[in-house]
Simulated assay, not measured.
Amino acid sequence: MAIKTYSFNKEEKLKSRKMIETLFRDGKAFSVFPYRVIYMHASLHTDKYPVQAGFSVSSRKFPHAVDRNRIKRLGREAYRIQKQSLYDALRESGAQLAVFFIYTDKKIADFDILSRKFSVILEKLTREAVRKD
């Protein structure tokens, strides 16, 4: 059942404060500049989507909300377009992930750069998810 989904629905967004706190406390992390990625295996409340993702940008590095929102929007778009391979691997293994992407650069990157970085990030997440299960 390889349903291709290019959306980023409400159920795919990591919004639970409890889950986010657990993720930051117990999750594993790696960096692919300009992102720091924190992830952990979790039992999510949805069977439809194997990943819940959250995005964050430092208000200290980007004091204007317009800039923070743009960076988050670019990151979500890059993730949305390329997430399918991760979803397929997780569905195959029956695992679920909670993931948080933290933008660490001091300037706004182009979408092309973010897209390339997200392909590396998602490959790494796929390897980690499959290796674990």
Rank of each mutant, 00 (worst) to 15 (best):
residue 24 F to E: 03
residue 24 F to R: 09
residue 25 R to S: 15
residue 26 D to K: 12
residue 26 D to W: 03
residue 27 G to V: 07
residue 27 G to R: 00
residue 27 G to Q: 02
residue 28 K to E: 12
residue 29 A to D: 10
residue 29 A to C: 12
residue 30 F to K: 03
residue 30 F to I: 13
residue 31 S to F: 07
residue 31 S to Y: 09
residue 31 S to D: 12
residue 31 S to A: 14
residue 32 V to L: 11
residue 32 V to W: 02
residue 33 F to S: 13
residue 33 F to G: 10
residue 33 F to P: 12
residue 33 F to N: 09
residue 34 P to M: 05
residue 35 Y to W: 09
residue 35 Y to T: 08
residue 36 R to A: 13
residue 36 R to Y: 10
residue 36 R to E: 14
residue 37 V to N: 01
residue 37 V to P: 02
residue 37 V to F: 01
residue 37 V to Y: 00
residue 38 I to M: 01
residue 38 I to C: 01
residue 38 I to T: 09
residue 39 Y to K: 03
residue 39 Y to T: 06
residue 40 M to A: 13
residue 40 M to L: 15
residue 40 M to C: 11
residue 40 M to E: 08
residue 42 A to G: 07
residue 44 L to C: 12
residue 44 L to T: 11
residue 46 T to E: 08
residue 46 T to D: 10
residue 47 D to G: 14
residue 47 D to R: 14
residue 47 D to A: 14
residue 48 K to N: 12
residue 49 Y to W: 11
residue 49 Y to R: 05
residue 49 Y to A: 09
residue 50 P to W: 01
residue 51 V to N: 00
residue 52 Q to P: 06
residue 52 Q to S: 03
residue 53 A to W: 01
residue 53 A to S: 10
residue 54 G to D: 03
residue 54 G to Y: 06
residue 54 G to M: 04
residue 54 G to L: 05
residue 55 F to C: 03
residue 56 S to P: 07
residue 56 S to D: 01
residue 56 S to Q: 04
residue 56 S to R: 02
residue 57 V to I: 06
residue 58 S to R: 08
residue 58 S to K: 11
residue 59 S to Y: 13
residue 59 S to T: 14
residue 59 S to R: 14
residue 60 R to P: 11
residue 61 K to C: 06
residue 61 K to N: 15
residue 62 F to K: 00
residue 63 P to R: 12
residue 63 P to W: 01
residue 64 H to I: 06
residue 64 H to K: 15
residue 64 H to E: 13
residue 65 A to D: 08
residue 67 D to W: 01
residue 67 D to V: 12
residue 68 R to C: 04
residue 68 R to P: 09
residue 68 R to A: 04
residue 69 N to R: 10
residue 70 R to I: 06
residue 70 R to Q: 09
residue 70 R to K: 14
residue 70 R to L: 13
residue 71 I to N: 02
residue 71 I to A: 02
residue 73 R to V: 07
residue 73 R to W: 08
residue 73 R to M: 08
residue 75 G to I: 01
residue 75 G to E: 02
residue 75 G to N: 05
residue 77 E to Y: 04
residue 78 A to M: 04
residue 78 A to S: 09
residue 78 A to T: 04
residue 79 Y to Q: 04
residue 79 Y to F: 13
residue 79 Y to M: 03
residue 80 R to P: 08
residue 82 Q to W: 04
residue 82 Q to C: 06
residue 82 Q to D: 12
residue 83 K to V: 01
residue 83 K to G: 02
residue 84 Q to K: 05
residue 86 L to S: 09
residue 86 L to K: 02
residue 86 L to P: 07
residue 87 Y to F: 15
residue 87 Y to R: 05
residue 87 Y to S: 05
residue 87 Y to T: 10
residue 90 L to I: 12
residue 90 L to F: 06
residue 91 R to L: 13
residue 92 E to Q: 14
residue 93 S to H: 13
residue 93 S to K: 15
residue 93 S to M: 10
residue 94 G to I: 13
residue 95 A to T: 12
residue 95 A to S: 15
residue 95 A to I: 11
residue 95 A to R: 14
residue 96 Q to D: 07
residue 97 L to N: 00
residue 97 L to H: 01
residue 99 V to D: 00
residue 99 V to S: 00
residue 99 V to Y: 00
residue 100 F to K: 00
residue 100 F to I: 09
